[in-house]
């Protein structure tokens, strides 16, 4: 495969692919801004693996994988929220167990997928298959991106305060628990709807890497919320191009590009400059 694919593909398909890539880049990195700042990355890994497991179960039952991915990641978000807050167990232990459990479930469910589908559809949920994205899925992503952006704008004060320090936000009279659960819930939905682009194993690169890169450049949280999605778009599109050029799975290409992007941003970070 090479860049000629852009000329071969029908315009409508190309628009769907590019729109899906950009929207997934925006929505993942937008949620990543909170996930990274609130040190919830392990929790997010669990959700992405849960979405992968759900998707695999959907395929095994010959039912729509998207809805199963959605149900699984939301379920994990709903379980993890209270568990990490209230349980006597260390959050790392709970996350470690769920992390391996969801992965094991995903791989087990993959075994039940009929042989004919295993090579194509099943692999697409592992590594992503942007070429298989439908216009309906792009619409879902567009609605999700719009909704999350609107929620962040409406409750910017509360999200900003929680992102600074949850305990201090609580002390100032903000009901932090609903917002904390909202972040987990929205991350779960984001993971499920973006699975098609990057795949269950690497979706988290698109959540963590652009946001982490944006954090290297700005001291103002508003700027990070603006630049993180822009990095998300840039990394996603660059990954897409790289995947076509080198015939790589899209998910892997995006993970590689965004990781390199993060490395470069650390090197050039004005926040890390001394003096």
């Amino acid at each position: 495969m090479s860049l000629t694919i852009f000329t071969i593909l029908p315009l409508k398909t190309l628009v769907i692919i590019l729109a899906g890539t950009c929207l997934a880049g925006v929505v993942c990195s937008l949620m990543g801004t909170f996930i990274v700042r609130m040190k919830l990355t392990s929790l997010g890994f669990c959700m992405s693996h849960a979405a992968f497991a759900g998707s695999a179960l959907g395929l095994a039952l010959s039912l729509p994988p998207l809805w199963f991915a959605l149900a699984f990641s939301i379920l994990v978000a709903l379980i993890l929220g209270p568990l990490t807050e209230q349980s006597r167990l260390q959050p790392e232990i709970i996350l470690g167990i769920l992390f391996s459990l969801t992965m094991a479930l995903g791989l087990t469910f993959l075994n039940f997928i009929p042989d004919s589908a295993l090579s194509s559809t099943a692999m697409s949920i592992l590594w992503g298959s942007i070429l298989g994205i439908s216009s309906l899925e792009v619409w879902y992503l567009a609605i999700l991106t719009f909704s999350i952006t609107l929620i962040i704008i409406l409750f910017f004060k509360e999200f900003q305060a929680i992102a600074f320090d949850r305990k201090m936000a609580e002390a100032s009279g903000i009901p932090t628990r609903p917002f904390y659960y909202l972040i987990l819930f929205l991350t779960g939905i984001t993971v499920a709807f973006s699975l098609k682009l990057v795949g269950g194993l690497l979706i988290f690169a698109l959540i963590v890497n652009p946001a982490s890169a944006a954090y290297q450049f700005f001291h103002d949280f508003k700027k990070i919320l603006i630049f993180s999605p822009l990095f998300g778009i840039f990394f996603s599109l660059s990954g897409l191009v790289l995947s076509f050029l080198l015939d790589l799975p899209v998910g892997s290409a995006i993970a590689i590009v965004s990781s390199v992007g993060f490395g470069i941003s650390v090197l050039f970070s004005p926040k890390r400059r001394k003096g």
């Binding site: 409750f155 004060k157 900003q160 600074f164 201090m168 100032s172 009279g173 103002d220 949280f221």
Partner: peptide, 22 residues
Amino acid sequence: PLTPFLVKDIILMGRYGQIGLL
């Protein structure tokens, strides 16, 4: 050290609870 908030934001955040939602 990399905390992405300005001093003025931190002061204002203390008042967010009193300002209220939306």
